[in-house]
Amino acid sequence: MKISKQTAPHYIWGSRCDGWHLVQQENLSIIHEHMPPGTQEVRHYHSRARQFFFVLTGVATMEVQGELITLYPHEGIEIPPRVSHQMINRSSEAVEFLVISQPTTRGDRVEFPGFNPKKF
């Protein structure tokens, strides 16, 4: 079945970020996400899920266990299970990216709400 941002189930996360579930299965999740400038997710890890983040447009910063990694369009990063990470948009432009998770991350997220990436 054909799917797009226009037909995929939409949700809002954080205060201003968007996600569209392109594939939503127990063994595989593919989400198209949009982050406005100056937004970030809560630092976290997944107990079981392995993830791959792939930037479509914009410039993103991924914090991985204290290391900041800049991702440009058409670049990605794999995050193994139990590795803390946080997607950040420090740029003045929106970032769009894909998040591919296997298995799904539903019920598999442990957050670190007090973490501040600005100290890096």
Results as ranks from 00 to 15, higher is better:
13 W>R: 01
14 G>R: 11
14 G>W: 11
15 S>W: 01
16 R>W: 07
16 R>Q: 07
18 D>A: 07
18 D>E: 15
18 D>I: 03
20 W>H: 12
21 H>G: 03
24 Q>E: 12
24 Q>M: 09
24 Q>K: 12
24 Q>G: 08
25 Q>H: 12
26 E>H: 08
26 E>Q: 11
26 E>W: 02
26 E>S: 14
27 N>K: 02
27 N>T: 09
29 S>I: 08
29 S>N: 10
30 I>L: 02
30 I>Q: 01
30 I>E: 00
31 I>A: 07
32 H>T: 08
32 H>P: 04
34 H>K: 06
34 H>I: 04
34 H>W: 03
35 M>Y: 12
38 G>L: 00
40 Q>K: 14
41 E>Q: 11
42 V>T: 15
48 R>Q: 14
48 R>T: 11
48 R>M: 12
49 A>V: 10
50 R>K: 09
50 R>F: 00
52 F>I: 15
52 F>N: 13
55 V>C: 11
56 L>R: 05
56 L>H: 04
57 T>V: 14
60 A>D: 04
61 T>V: 14
61 T>W: 10
64 V>H: 10
64 V>G: 09
65 Q>I: 02
66 G>A: 08
67 E>I: 11
69 I>N: 13
69 I>L: 15
70 T>D: 05
71 L>E: 02
71 L>N: 02
72 Y>F: 13
73 P>W: 03
74 H>Y: 14
74 H>L: 14
77 I>L: 15
77 I>R: 05
78 E>C: 13
79 I>G: 00
80 P>F: 09
81 P>A: 07
86 Q>E: 14
89 N>K: 00
89 N>E: 06
89 N>H: 02
90 R>C: 08
90 R>T: 11
90 R>F: 10
92 S>L: 14
93 E>L: 12
93 E>H: 15
94 A>C: 13
94 A>G: 15
95 V>F: 12
96 E>S: 01
101 S>Q: 02
102 Q>G: 11
104 T>P: 03
108 D>W: 06
108 D>V: 03
108 D>Q: 08
109 R>Q: 10
109 R>P: 00
110 V>D: 02
112 F>R: 03
112 F>S: 08
112 F>D: 13
113 P>V: 10
113 P>C: 05
113 P>S: 07
114 G>M: 05
114 G>N: 13
114 G>Y: 09
115 F>I: 05
116 N>P: 06
116 N>V: 13
116 N>Q: 13
